[in-house]
Amino acid sequence: MITALLYTAAGLLLFCLGLWSFLMHRPLLRKLIALNVMGSGVFLVFVALAYRGPEGAPDPVPHALVLTGIVVAVSATALALALGRRLEEAERD
């Protein structure tokens, strides 16, 4: 129980750190890193809630959600980078 509480707290802190950085920085790359840290915080809360102690089998449903979440996060990052690059090119022309 204390393990789940500890890691949930860490996940919340990560989310809030990322949110702060996301709101405070202007460059796209900074925002993307912050967004990824926020996502990691959410994943950490999910996996912490799925933890059932050292002997118990963990809940597979949040694990599956986090797994798809990681892949979606990286594809969203790649799309944002491509759009950002296009935007810069358009501004330079």
Partner: peptide
């Protein structure tokens, strides 16, 4: 922004710890 996020963190922690306990 800093204060607002700190408050939000407190509320979130309260909700999650209640749910866990």
């Amino acid at each position: 922004v800093t204060i607002a996020i700190a408050l939000a963190a407190g509320v979130l922690w309260w909700v999650f710890s209640l749910a866990l306990l």
